[in-house]
Design a protein around this nucleic acid. Structure first.
Lengths: 126, 126
DNA sequence: CGGCATCCCCTCGGATACTG
DNA sequence: CAGTATCCGAGGGGATGCCG
């Protein structure tokens, strides 16, 4: 069988890291173990709620661990599991691709959009 | 700076291939140039609308091309651009990772869910 | 500090019907 | 054959407020 890419199963990881925040959380956690507030501070624009939701998902999937220290004030630390680290490596391939091609993609978009406008102009604007 | 993984820009590719269908379309197109109906037939469960929407997106980003042959009945062919092919390669890293770890993830989930139920049992079910 | 609960909007995507 | 147009429900995710 062996599809080189993206049979039905491939969607399942995208369901996990393809959401708005997972990959960024994984990336930041990849640096080292971090506390909740650290993560929140370092991931620009994430809400408290979504950070919690995302972390729970990663924890559930065995990608991150959550360690609670029973002190006051509460101290909770998150880190990647070994599997999480391998996921980060795998994802980095895509990230590298992104960095290499984002300009090209932006150019393609601009081009495409411009051509769409041309077409709309030709047949008399509505 | 050089984040190894997933700075802000990484999200941008996930916005492109992280949706429900893009990766599968890319994968099928990776085999060879295909017609609209072929794609629809080979991608299980995709609706006509979402195939169109997805293809438009890929075309706009310079990942796929659309070629119309002015004949009746209409004949439209889609294929990957060179850039699209490199994206497929990059994505395959993740797919391989997925295949290798899906079982482990499923196990982690089952575990996690079981532990959640235990906790809820302990403090008197509501 | 590190959450959970609630409200609510908005986008994604499915179903269906119509066209060149 | 290869679309476009419209409607609609589900859920992702932001804002806010309360809690141990």
């Amino acid at each position: 069988m062996e599809h080189t890419v993206a049979g039905c199963r491939a969607r399942e990881i995208l369901d996990r890291i393809g959401d708005k925040w997972s990959l960024q959380v994984i990336a930041v956690l990849g640096e080292r173990t971090k506390r909740f507030t650290e993560l929140k501070r370092e991931i620009d624009g994430i809400s408290q709620r979504m950070l919690t939701v995302t972390l729970r998902g990663l924890e559930r999937d065995g990608i991150a661990t959550r360690t609670v220290y029973p002190v006051v004030p509460p101290r909770v630390e998150y880190s990647l599991t070994p599997m999480g680290a391998t996921l980060m490596d795998a994802a980095s391939t895509l990230v590298v691709w992104a960095e290499r091609h984002l300009e090209e993609i932006d150019a393609a978009r601009t081009d495409y959009d411009a051509r769409q406008n041309d077409v709309r102009d030709e047949d008399g604007r509505r």
